[in-house]
Amino acid sequence: MNPASEPRHKILIVDDSKTIVTVINNILKKDYETCSAENGLKAVESFKKEKPDLILMDVEMPEMNGFEACKKIKALDSENNGFTPIIFITGKGDLKSMKIGLESGGQDYLAKPFEPEELLARVQAVLRTKKLYNELMNAYAIIEREQDIVASIQQSLLCKDLPKIPGFQFFADYQPSSKASGDYYDFTRIDENHLGVLVADVSGHGSPAAVIMAMMRVILRSFLSTIHSPKEVLEKINESLCDNQKAGHFITAFYGVIHLPTRKMKFASAGHNPPLLIDYDSGNTLELRTEKGFPLMIHPKNEIEEKEVVLPLNSKLICYTDGFTEARGRDQEMYGLERLKQNSLEMGRSLNAKTLGQALKNHVQAYLNGHEFTDDFTLVILQVES
Rank of each mutant, 00 (worst) to 15 (best):
C319K: 04
Y335C: 07
Q332F: 09
A327V: 03
Y335D: 10
L340A: 03
L356I: 03
V309Q: 09
N314H: 14
T325F: 08
E303G: 04
G323V: 08
E333L: 14
Y335G: 08
I304E: 12
E305I: 03
C319M: 15
G323K: 05
E303Q: 08
G283S: 06
E326Y: 00
P312N: 08
L286C: 07
A353G: 05
R289N: 12
G293D: 09
P312F: 12
G357Q: 09
H299L: 15
N362E: 15
N284C: 03
A353N: 08
K361P: 00
S282T: 15
P312Y: 11
K361S: 03
E326K: 12
T321R: 07
L317M: 12
N284K: 13
R339L: 06
L356R: 07
H299P: 01
A359Y: 01
G329L: 05
R330L: 15
T321A: 01
V310M: 12
S350V: 07
Y280I: 07
P300Q: 06
Q332V: 04
M297D: 02
N284V: 11
T355G: 01
E333P: 03
I318V: 15
G293N: 01
L296P: 05
V309H: 05
Y335T: 05
T355A: 09
N302E: 13
L356P: 05
N352K: 12
L337M: 15
L311I: 13
F324E: 01
N314I: 08
N343H: 10
Q358N: 11
E333G: 00
E305P: 02
L351A: 07
I304V: 10
R289W: 07
E338S: 14
N343C: 05
E287F: 12
L356W: 08
N352A: 02
